[in-house]
Computed example of a mutant assay.
Amino acid sequence: MSKKRILYVEDDETLAFLTADNLEQHFEVVHCANGKAGFELFCQETFDLCVLDIMLPDMDGFEIATEIRKRNEEIPIIFLSAKTLKEDRIKGLKLGADDYLVKPYSIEELILKIEIFLNRSQKNIEKTQKSYTIGSFAFEPENYQLTNSKEQITLTERESALLLLFIENTNTVLKREKILTSLWGNDDYFSGRSLDVFISRLRKIFKEETHVRIENIPRVGFKLVIENS
């Protein structure tokens, strides 16, 4: 798997060397020493996350972030700064930054935050890109929507999560306990009754779909069966 690409803009030569050296153990790092060059590089290449110092020559971190957000609303941005004023932190976050670390910062903390924001960003990408076909329905998990030529059905968040779990395990038996712990975090009596209600609702939705059914596996769990039409 290729490493995620980080745009790192920092004019302090020593700090930049130490930080980049550590980050490169986990990511592909492209370093720029001034703001204008960093922003131009962002426009020319593809990155997964930006780490920006605020006090930079030619174009400061706030200005870079403002321009980046005009072009990309999703890419994570982390500010690094010697500025400790609350007003500066608030300004950075209002510009769309995901976090603001004050120098001197911990490399371990920076790496952890980068990993968290990259994971979150990847999940968001996967979530918005994925849609599924179930019989005559198109299922959009992020919108909790089931749509076909006749109707549009809005599921609850839990119903949508249940259906997605079934789809990700199509034609595979899912144990009742696995479903309950995945959706509720436990397998107590009340969660079990809720699951039965959700199963009934999904069966009702798909009752006209001759190639789609949710089978009950006695004393084990359930299975979503989708047959080739």
Rank of each mutant, 00 (worst) to 15 (best):
S191V: 10
L56Y: 04
T154I: 13
V173M: 11
E10S: 09
H211P: 01
Y105L: 13
E109Y: 09
K113L: 14
I199C: 03
S2K: 15
R71K: 15
R219L: 09
K150N: 12
E87F: 04
E73H: 13
D21Y: 10
V220A: 05
Q44H: 05
F47H: 03
E168H: 08
K123S: 03
G61Q: 10
T128K: 15
Y8M: 03
F117N: 02
L85E: 12
K130M: 12
G92L: 08
S194V: 06
L101K: 13
S81V: 12
E73W: 08
I214P: 11
E87H: 05
F139L: 10
L163C: 07
I114V: 15
T154P: 00
Q129G: 05
V212A: 03
E177L: 10
R213C: 06
E215W: 07
I78R: 11
E109A: 12
I205V: 14
V173R: 09
V212H: 01
W184C: 03
T172L: 13
S131F: 11
F17P: 03
P57M: 13
D196Y: 08
L56W: 05
I205C: 06
N169Y: 04
F222R: 03
E40R: 12
T19S: 09
T133H: 12
I214A: 09
Q152G: 10
K3H: 06
D12V: 08
I134K: 00
C43N: 12
F27G: 00
D187Q: 12
F190V: 04
L41I: 13
D188M: 09
S229Q: 11
I68H: 04
R176A: 03
I78W: 07
F17V: 14
S131A: 11
Y189G: 00
L164T: 04
S121E: 11
K207S: 10
P57T: 10
F190G: 00
L49Q: 05
K36F: 04
S200K: 15
Y144E: 01
R5W: 04
Q152D: 05
L202S: 04
D21P: 01
D21M: 12
E227F: 05
I90K: 15
A65E: 05
L164Y: 03
E45D: 13
V9S: 05
Q122H: 07
M55F: 07
Q25V: 09
D58R: 14
F79Q: 02
E208L: 14
Q44C: 05
L85A: 13
T170D: 02
F139S: 04
S160M: 09
Q122K: 14
L80S: 02
C43S: 12
Q129V: 12
D98M: 15
K83P: 01
D12H: 08
S200V: 08
D58Y: 11
L93A: 06
I125T: 09
F42A: 03
I125Y: 09
F39H: 01
E108K: 15
